[in-house]
Write a protein that binds this DNA or RNA. Structure first.
Lengths: 276, 276
DNA sequence: CAAATTACGTAACATAAGATACAGCGCTCC
DNA sequence: GGAGCGCTGTATCTTATGTTACGTAATTTG
């Protein structure tokens, strides 16, 4: 079974004429980057003419050059998104037993998620959430609503005016009237994206509410209205998508906000304690 | 020092207008592949127009789009040649910030949690949950209730008689009357352990209910009554404990139960779809 | 050794890509 | 509430990219 283009090439390189073989070797030499460049660049890199390159990709079975490039990009995307295959996880060496591939995938998802997330982004979002000028609303979809609850439960302790929007759509909608420019709406929405959330986010956006979106790597349509977008990896060997990466980001944010509000928050926590 | 384009983007994303920010977010979401496609593809992926993409790359300091793509390719080439540096340097190398320790601690927690958890234990619990002789109840504490909800939301799809116990203590207590030997109660309880949960678990235990307990490494007193105990690591450099490890265990279990119920579950899911 | 076939490059072509000009709109700031 | 500014999208244009046709050179075969 031939799965990658590299394999396909080495499979057929024996039957190729000289010029095309040079093209093949050049591509393999620093795969797959040469293939992502233009035909002209590829051809000069290989020291052959453009038509030779085109005949080369035609021989591989592609209809035209763009199709060939798309295939390479897809392959690259698959590689970049699941480093699992190559990353011989150094941190869990003494693991003779087949520990859950689920765990491995989840750990990879988290690393990947944070790789695409800079400290600055997180700090910006934390600052926004810590800024006590307005209210904070949290809402989630079918499976992600618990994440919204989790975050709300923590934030509500360290600062006032934190509200989790639960229940029926009509209930949230009525809360829109309380929402304005100074407020923040945290939305969790992963595939399959929910129409109701989109409608709600749009209306909130129209009212000037700043939206922080937690979504998956394919980006919920709500990204359109969001001030900040956090794209978490969700792919795991299961029938369900994993929200674990988003959960960790949420915890990280909770920690960051807590740190920023330390002074004020500490007093608040003392006050809360004394209320019990 | 700004070394990668991803950093450059997150550095300037704050100063960008809405449309360009969407472009930036889309690119970061699956970096760098979107940037290697054509302007048209990039623009539709981001939901903006082509000129916005071009303005975006111009703002990053590139003369034109091809120059931008070349830069991305160079970066990718460097990455592909030394896969080791990928996981290390990542998108946030200069990590004076407090983000990475949080992630590292969380990842360690998960590894530790699973190290103390055998495949057999997980399989046993999954089997118990998949066994459709009785009902499944889920309940959680102040911060862990969302985990119970999350698990309930998934289990309820693949099998009947799954109930999340929410709201006031008196409400759960009344549900005890429906619970018996054939039933399973999943409890989430981490420090500071809640009296109310303990009381409830004890009564359920007296009625012969099988208890599956998610707790921290210090073990909630409910462990005394539990048939299965999952002890997750919770320590992170934050004012709060982390429930992330328990979350991942929960997801793993959801996956395992789903697999066991595959045949029956698939039919059930089809039936559900047809109800919409 | 000669003839035919295949491979390769040059050059012209068509197409699709990136770039630009401009107008409308929304937003912010008086 | 009004004026100004800045952002965004549509439509147009230009560039350069991929593609094809054709002639020449190399290679193989009878």
């Amino acid at each position: 079974m031939i799965s990658s283009i590299a394999e396909l090439i080495s499979d057929r390189i024996g039957t190729m004429p000289a010029g095309e073989r040079r093209a093949a070797q050049t591509l393999i030499a620093n795969y797959p980057l040469t293939g992502l460049k233009t035909v002209a660049e590829f051809s000069t890199a290989a020291g052959v003419s453009s038509p030779t390159i085109l005949r080369f990709v035609a021989r591989l079975g592609f209809q035209n050059y763009p199709e060939f490039q798309s295939a390479l990009q897809d392959e690259l995307a698959a590689q970049l998104q699941s480093p699992a295959s190559r990353t011989l996880n150094s941190a869990s060496p003494a693991n003779g037993g087949a520990v859950s591939p689920m765990l491995e995938a989840t750990l990879d998802n988290m690393r990947e998620t944070f790789r695409h997330l800079t400290d600055k982004q997180l700090a910006d979002i934390a600052a926004r959430l810590a800024e006590r000028r307005g209210k904070t609303f949290l809402i989630g979809g079918r499976f992600t609503d618990p994440l919204a609850r989790y975050m709300a439960a923590h934030l509500a302790i360290i600062q006032p005016d934190v509200y989790h929007l639960a229940g029926q759509e009509s209930i949230w909608r009525d809360r829109l009237i309380d929402m304005g420019k100074r407020d923040v709406l945290v939305v969790f929405d992963i595939r399959r994206y929910q129409e109701s959330l989109l409608r709600f986010a749009e209306k909130a956006h129209q009212r000037g509410v700043q939206i922080v979106l937690f979504t998956d790597q394919w980006l919920s349509p709500i990204a359109r209205f969001a001030r900040h977008v956090i794209a978490g990896r969700t792919a795991v060997p299961s029938a369900w998508d994993s929200s674990a990466a988003l959960f960790v980001v949420a915890e990280t944010l909770i920690g960051a906000v807590t740190r920023q509000l330390e002074a004020a928050g500490a007093k608040r926590i003392r006050d809360l304690e004394s209320l019990r």
